[in-house]
Design a protein around this nucleic acid. Structure first.
Length: 724
DNA sequence: ATAAAGTGACTTTTT
DNA sequence: GTCACTTTAT
């Protein structure tokens, strides 16, 4: 069978597994996506399963898209009808079609993280709780956790006063969402689970359809997702899940790797298949990874082995601080590229928190080297993008108060606090939403509602209201793209945002980008466009082929691989993050996160440990990450930058030291190389020093080699030997 | 009603 | 150092 040709025996076993539940435990780089895609291809071509009867769920759109591409490439035919998407997108689609059994309309909008926080703030105000004392983000996290566990406001357990507050806020939060005809991310899962639980006929409809359910990254499912899968596969009972407890890094988002254990218990006739051969990393890298994860209790032991022997030892490099760290990153990349050992696109720099990216960016900028940043200032988080989307959302669903509040005075149209207050008061009195009132004001000049406003305010509201009416009518005839253009023109958005400054120009460019995106939704309607926009993450926009180094968080790195991986900030407080210190489970998750980072590397791995970090803008001494203690010294090549304190890690074991403020002095540095000197380079042989200068904490030397000509090298990296 | 200036709080990861 | 939010001045 052609489909099986490029698979090892374990992979084949998984692909060919018969009916019933199947669990594939797949180590990093063991080809789990390959197994999933081949399985789908096999079901369609050899078992005669119609694509319409297959459901495949992933966590990111990118994973879904990749899976789709690979299946199409494999079987070279149409897979139309197959449900392949993220949990959230799949649920959104189901909910759209089943709103008759649900307390919201099918034109609901999906609130993003910022909108959700706004709603929490509003709810806090309603129950008269000071949002200084109860941080909206914290309260939201509690609500989100409850939703992931399918706990509704009435069932929210109360043990402390804090719980009591959360419970009340949760109640109002949920009501506010419904009165806005809006759902948050968690609702998509929650309401779908509820729907399938409460309505047997709906459950049967979907579970009959999905003869085969396949799930990627199963260790990241939360309880809501677990039950969802349970219901969706309840009729045929063909559920095929792939996962790896060692790569579970989303506990904070409700993910529970114990779902794997639960799965084993709930499905006694389960077939379990282990994928242990790694096709990605060299043995040297895998050895380090195993040392880190072996310390992890509660895991299914896997014996990873690789078909790729003979690489170089991973490097552990100690630096004085994060500034020096980023310089080392840039120097290493530049040096390897200069020596033709790598191309710029081979590098990935991974860090624990997004905040760490800024200093790295600065270093790349300073060296005038291009880079690609994943996440951080998100496209969809940009003010101008959110503005345009808010307009569109309001057209889609006029009850969306959050979007209305956002754009009611953007661009400025003289609707200030006073007018807003009058509008909200009227909204309360008439029990109608603000958008509804606005529509009436715009549509009926003689409306009795006019009396609530003074002349000036009324004129402003009338204007916006009639525009909204116009757009609402256009929605039926125009594509999202055309509608967007109409709105932009009607409100003079370009004039407002592109104010002649560089920043304004960039912002207008972003609007253009959004227009281009809308252009792709020519025949799918506003609803679908808004849904996609709400459910894309920034990783999804990450193109797989680039020719520049990638900067990304360890979380964002999951599922990716790079020839050369540099993990920065390996110190206590950063990795592991200080928030995990007092929670054993969270500490284990930090360890897995480190493991995920290491196992992204194919050929080379650099671990960087700074001795000081910048917190709140001021430097502060830190200890090396405890995870480094678990890696025997002989598995690493240990180096240190010139400014770093020596002797942190001596023969065999780590010696933990604590260095105080008194020692944070500048270490004097003198040039080691002088013009005219002869040096030996491991690659390029003998050469003569032409020039040398101190740059940052390093010495940059220009050398003329007899064999290769003029080269510029960084002294600490180039392993030069002075020839007497 | 708006712009400028000041304050404080926070930094984990995201569909 | 940065963001969001508040106060103050125009």
């Amino acid at each position: 069978m052609e489909i099986l040709e490029e698979l090892n025996s374990q992979q084949q076993q998984a692909v060919l597994a018969g009916y019933g539940p199947v669990l594939v435990l797949a180590g990093p780089g063991s080809g789990k996506t390959r197994v999933l895609t081949h399985r789908i291809a096999y079901l369609i071509t050899h078992r005669g399963v119609h694509p319409y009867n297959i459901l495949a769920v992933t966590f990111t759109n990118k994973a879904a898209r990749e899976m789709e591409d690979r299946v199409i490439r494999l079987i070279g035919e149409d897979i139309r009808g197959m449900t392949l998407g993220t949990f959230h997108a799949t649920c959104a689609r189901i909910l759209r079609g089943e709103s008759n059994n649900l307390p919201f309309e099918s034109n609901y909008v999906i609130y993003d993280a910022d909108d959700q926080i706004s709603i929490v703030k509003q709810a806090l105000k309603e129950v008269q709780i000071d949002d200084k004392k109860y941080r909206p983000s914290g309260v939201h996290a509690s609500i989100s956790r409850a939703k992931n566990e399918l706990i509704l406001p009435d069932d929210f357990p109360v043990n402390t006063y804090h719980d009591e507050v959360v419970k009340r806020v949760y109640h109002h939060y949920q009501n506010l969402l419904l009165s806005n005809n809006a759902l948050d991310f968690d609702d998509l899962l929650l309401w779908t689970a509820f729907l399938l639980e409460e309505y047997p006929e709906v459950r049967e409809k979907y579970s009959r359809r999905y003869e085969h359910v396949l799930v990627d990254e199963f260790q990241d499912t939360n309880l809501a997702q677990y039950l969802l899968l349970n219901h969706l596969s309840s009729f045929h009972n063909n559920i095929f899940v792939v996962g790896d407890t060692d790569q579970s890094i989303y506990r904070w988002r409700g993910a529970d790797y114990r779902n794997l254990l639960r799965f084993e218990k709930d499905y006694p006739d389960l077939q379990t298949i282990l994928l242990e051969q790694n096709y990605r990393s060299t043995q040297e890298i895998l050895d380090v990874a195993m040392r880190v994860i072996d310390r992890h209790p509660l895991r299914t032991p896997k014996h990873l082995f690789t078909s790729r022997p003979g690489g170089s030892k991973p490097v552990l490099h100690e630096v004085y601080d994060d500034k020096e760290e980023s310089r080392f990153v840039v120097d290493t990349a530049a040096d390897l590229v200069a020596r033709d050992k790598a191309s710029p696109g081979d590098f990935a720099v991974m860090y624990r928190t997004n905040a760490q990216s800024r200093i790295l960016e600065e270093a790349f900028l300073q060296a005038s080297l291009p880079y690609r940043l994943v996440g951080a200032q998100r496209f969809y988080g940009r003010r101008e993008v959110k503005d345009i989307i808010a307009y569109l959302r309001l057209v889609q669903n006029p009850d969306d108060e959050i979007s209305l509040a956002r754009i009611i005075n953007i661009p400025r149209r003289g609707i200030g606090d006073k007018t807003l207050f009058a509008l909200y008061t009227l909204s309360q009195q008439t029990n109608r939403t603000s958008g509804d009132i606005l529509l009436e004001l715009g549509g009926n000049r003689e409306s009795p509602l006019n009396r609530a406003f003074n002349n000036q305010a009324l004129a402003n509201l009338n204007h916006l209201g009639s525009l909204l009416n116009k757009w609402k009518n256009l929605k039926e005839h125009q594509t999202p793209f055309e509608l967007m253009d109409t709105i932009i023109k009607d409100v003079n958005y370009q004039e407002y945002i592109d104010d002649g400054s560089d920043e304004g120009h960039d912002r207008w460019e972003n609007v253009q980008e959004l227009r281009r995106l809308a252009y792709e939704y020519m025949d799918s309607g506003l609803e679908i466009f808004l849904e996609r926009v709400a459910l894309v993450s920034d990783q999804d926009t990450l193109e797989t082929t680039t020719s520049v180094p990638t900067l990304l968080t360890l979380h964002a790195a999951k599922g990716l691989e790079f020839p050369i991986v540099i993990i920065v900030g390996l110190n206590e407080g950063t990795l592991p993050h200080s928030r995990s210190f007092d929670d054993e489970e969270e500490m284990l998750e930090e360890r897995r996160l480190f493991y995920v980072g290491i196992t992204r590397a194919k050929d080379r791995l650099y671990l960087i440990s700074p001795q000081n970090k910048t917190a709140f803008g001021y430097p502060e001494p830190v200890q090396p990450s405890r995870f480094l203690d678990d890696i025997p010294t002989d598995l690493l090549e240990e180096t240190r930058s010139l400014h770093a304190y020596p002797g942190l890690r001596s023969s065999g074991q780590y010696r933990r030291t604590f260095w105080g403020a008194a020692e944070t002095r500048e270490i004097p540095y003198e040039k080691k190389y002088v013009p005219g000197q002869h040096v030996q380079h491991p690659e390029w042989g003998e050469g003569m020093v032409l020039n040398s200068r101190i740059e940052g904490s390093d010495e940059v030397v220009d050398i003329f080699f007899e064999a290769v000509g003029l080269k510029r090298v960084v002294a600490s990296l180039a392993k030069l030997v002075i020839v007497k």
